[in-house]
Amino acid sequence: MSQTPEAIMLFAAGFGTRMGALTKDCPKAMIHVGGRPLLDHALALADVAGIQRRVVNTHYLADQVEDHLAGRDVAISREQPDILETGGGLRAALPLLGAGPVFTLNTDAIWTGPNPLTALYKAWDPSRMKALLLLVPAERALGHTGPGDFAIGPDGRITRGAGYVYTGAQIIDPTGLSLIRQTSFSLNQLWDRMSGDEALYGTVHKGGWCDVGRPEGIAEAEAMLANPPALLG
Rank of each mutant, 00 (worst) to 15 (best):
G14L: 02
L69D: 10
L84E: 04
I8Q: 01
A92D: 06
I171W: 00
V165Y: 00
R128P: 01
A70V: 04
A99N: 14
A169W: 00
R193C: 05
Y164K: 01
K206R: 15
R181E: 14
Y201L: 04
P174V: 04
H205I: 01
H32F: 13
G14A: 14
D67N: 14
A109N: 13
I218F: 06
V212E: 03
T23P: 08
T183V: 11
D47Y: 06
K122P: 00
G217F: 01
P114L: 04
G113V: 07
Q3R: 15
T104G: 07
T118L: 03
L45C: 09
P81Q: 09
T159I: 13
A44R: 07
P81I: 09
K130H: 09
D211C: 12
A49D: 06
L190W: 03
A42H: 04
G196V: 04
L231Y: 10
W124R: 00
E216R: 15
V65A: 05
G163P: 11
L142C: 05
R193H: 10
G156T: 00
Y121H: 12
E220G: 05
D25K: 07
G217A: 02
L179I: 07
Q52I: 12
T112M: 07
W111N: 07
H41L: 13
H32C: 14
S2P: 15
L84H: 02
A226N: 11
D108G: 12
F11E: 02
P37D: 13
E198S: 15
L96I: 12
G153W: 07
E6M: 09
V33R: 05
G176S: 11
K28G: 13
T167F: 02
L69N: 08
T167W: 01
A138K: 08
K130Q: 14
L39V: 10
S178R: 15
A162D: 13
T23F: 02
A226V: 05
G20M: 03
P228K: 05
P229H: 06
P215M: 02
P174Y: 09
L45S: 02
P126L: 06
T17S: 13
C26L: 14
V102S: 01
A109G: 09
V212R: 07
L142H: 06
G208W: 00
R36Y: 13
A29N: 08
F185C: 09
T159G: 08
D173S: 11
R157C: 07
I8Y: 04
V48I: 15
A119E: 03
F150R: 09
L231N: 13
Q80W: 11
F103P: 03
E85W: 10
D108T: 11
R54V: 15
L69A: 11
M194T: 00
Y201W: 14
L232I: 12
M19P: 09
A7I: 08
M9L: 15
G176I: 03
R128N: 10
A162P: 05
I158C: 01
A123D: 08
T107D: 08
G163H: 06
T17C: 08
I110N: 04
I76T: 10
G98N: 09
E139H: 13
R160I: 12
L84K: 12
A93C: 07
E139M: 09
D173A: 12
R157Y: 04
A138H: 10
L177M: 10
G176T: 04
S186D: 12
